[in-house]
């Protein structure tokens, strides 16, 4: 495993510093300044120490979570997911779409092109909606990397548990809506 590097490349690191990261650096500085001015130096130090302490606790979790994500991606390649989603649009199709969505890693730039390709190649709309819903509420990658470390295991588990039926509900509602809007659906 690569060792910890003390200094990171300050410029020309496209994956390291994008627009939203810069924005958030500014937000952090602004919030820090506001704490300093409104609540005083003690509060500023407490907040900074809290943040750094949490960071130490969290970093091992993030490293492990990213590795888990990398293994899952290696085990379930994109082609397998496309096969799962291209099939039936019945209950089985919706359940497969739920599974595929929760395993799809990465942000919207990964999920939406996949859905578009599926839609164009004839996947049913309820399957697409179920997949997108599952990707957004059951996405394992995001839950492990962001939610588990920041909000804790108990909260994360509760949220995932209550979210289990949501993709299916969205798919069935979509089917109903389509039926209502166009009588030509066969």
């Amino acid at each position: 495993m690569a060792g910890q590097t003390g200094g990171k490349p300050a410029r020309n690191g496209p994956p390291l510093l994008d627009g939203s990261t810069v924005f958030f650096v500014l937000l952090a500085l602004g919030a820090g300044l506001a704490v300093l001015l409104l609540r005083g130096a003690d509060a500023f130090n407490t907040a900074l120490a809290d943040g750094l302490g949490l960071l130490l606790l969290i970093m091992p979790i993030v490293v492990a979570a990213v590795l888990v994500g990398a293994y899952v991606q290696a085990m379930v390649p994109r082609e397998a997911m496309e096969r799962w989603l291209g099939g039936s649009s019945g209950m089985r199709g919706l359940l497969l779409a739920t599974a595929a969505g929760s395993l799809t890693p990465g942000g919207p730039f990964a999920a939406f092109p996949l859905v578009l390709a599926l839609y164009r190649s004839g996947a049913a709309v309820p399957v697409c909606v179920t997949y997108l819903t599952s990707w957004s509420v059951l996405g394992i990658n995001r839950a492990l990397v962001w939610e588990l470390p920041l909000l804790g295991p108990e909260f994360t588990l509760t949220r995932l548990l209550v979210s289990l039926p949501l993709p299916l509900i969205a798919g069935l509602l979509t089917r109903g809506l389509l039926h209502r809007f166009s009588r030509t659906v066969t």
Binding site: L16, A47, V63, V66, G69, V145
Partner: peptide
């Protein structure tokens, strides 16, 4: 590791911003 790199920058910033925001 490729996916980890941007997080090494983002997560510390996000955490520190979060703990400042919590005070406000």
């Amino acid at each position: 590791w490729r996916q980890m790199r941007p997080l090494l920058v983002r997560i510390p910033i996000a955490l520190i911003a979060g703990s400042f925001l919590a005070m406000l």
